[in-house]
Design a binder for these strands. Sequence first.
DNA 1: AATTCTGTCACCCGTATAATCACAAAAATG
DNA 2: CATTTTTGTGATTATACGGGTGACAGAATT
Lengths: 267, 267
Amino acid sequence: MNDTQAMEEAVEVLQQLGLKEYEARCFVGLSRLRAGTAKQLADLTEVPRTRVYDAIRMLEAQGLVEIQHSSPQQFRSVPLQEATETLRDQYEARVDRLHDALTTIEVVEKEDDAPIQQVWAMSGYVAIENRAIDLMEEAREEVVLVIGDESLVTDELLACVNDIPAGVEVLLGAVSNDLERELRRNVSGATTFVSGLEWLVGEGVEHREVAIGRLLLVDRSAILVSSIMPDTGSEQAIFGEGFGNGLVVIARRLMAQGLVRGKDPAS
Amino acid sequence: MNDTQAMEEAVEVLQQLGLKEYEARCFVGLSRLRAGTAKQLADLTEVPRTRVYDAIRMLEAQGLVEIQHSSPQQFRSVPLQEATETLRDQYEARVDRLHDALTTIEVVEKEDDAPIQQVWAMSGYVAIENRAIDLMEEAREEVVLVIGDESLVTDELLACVNDIPAGVEVLLGAVSNDLERELRRNVSGATTFVSGLEWLVGEGVEHREVAIGRLLLVDRSAILVSSIMPDTGSEQAIFGEGFGNGLVVIARRLMAQGLVRGKDPAS
DNA sequence: AATTCTGTCACCCGTATAATCACAAAAATG
DNA sequence: CATTTTTGTGATTATACGGGTGACAGAATT
């Protein structure tokens, strides 16, 4: 990666982490200056000199830079190691506070009527993976998991699959030979197979370039199907649970036919 | 904690974590509703109904809520466990990206002239603790640490002190008997003592209510002194290094007199 | 058929933040 | 010592974003 690119990247990320633009630019500036005055920083980062002071003060308050009160003042950034550690701590504290606050109010409001057909949509790679892991951890009899893209095979996922107790039957599918080999190499106690999932993309219908993400069926009563969007590359999923759930019923059908047929066990 | 308090707290923290107010309120609302429509959410959270949709979309994109595309749409939040996990992952990823970006540009700009007296100021409890730990980890001969307030005795700090290799002499001071006992109970391989640090607050000068935070001297060549501000309760520190550093020189003097005198070892 | 509900848009407005300017004290220069 | 540059603070303007409100068409309900 190019230096200027990297700097922009860093500024961007710092802003996502809650810093203002000037603050971010100043911090990045100090990262390559080791130590500097307001003027030097202003020249390097193109932050208006008179605004550098405010930005630095904010950064100092957050424990990210140090100030030497000489004349002219000198600024320098905390070592990268310390900075990331500080940010991390800050964040952990926040997440904990959130967790505490929310658990004290998890008082559920009226659990009323019919648990009808519910199909939920979710998006985002991280959230979907977490949900998938959650589901697998709760499996009591059977887990069927088909992976459509190697980018989805993370350490967490593999660890989770390997942690499934012995009493639970695990069927692990892949859409390509390579991927299946990869899976078999990293997983024990599971039956792996290759599955052409043509039926998923819609047999003969319009058939756009939506790539298959993953397909997870747990105890034949909860299903999660995800796709990789062609344009953005983001992952989108739908998810249903309950034995009577329409989506789950359809999924059971399809699995029985398309998956298990030429292959292995269970009706 | 009261429910409404907890909700406000949660909203606040969520905003610190990067969510907009409406998004935060909606998420908190869904946390106690298990599932709900836009109208229900609007009534509960006082977010304008027409704005609930935008907020939910953002939340969905971040993997924090699920949408059921029925009519009316139903929304529900991801289980708290998953939500915090997702947020944590997101954050880790950002910090990593930051780390990568900054290391690629850590090309130091001109390391020029005289390494004169440098005294740096920093503030914020987390940052100061991190710096203190850093310093102690680099100790090769001697660590002198005086604690002025029990709130500063964290697990990390204790762990760090206990991890100091045997070859390094450790002098651990406290400003009260109780605190010294506490320290001795949790630390091994260190000489503990009680030190009235009157001299730190300025003998007879104005003497405001600045509480002593910590005092750290490593290898007699780096020093960190912190105070607890009377009004805000925040921690502020100054820090100097280099054997010739003025601050360090003074510190050595003071230590030799005020600390070691009536007590223990080393000149 | 009438009414309520649902979802989308377009718009206003206040605040926060980016961006400039004015200025006095301090430092540097000759 | 006089002049010029640098430094730090404060005030001011411009702008973008997010909070807040209303209009409206289609769907659902009565």
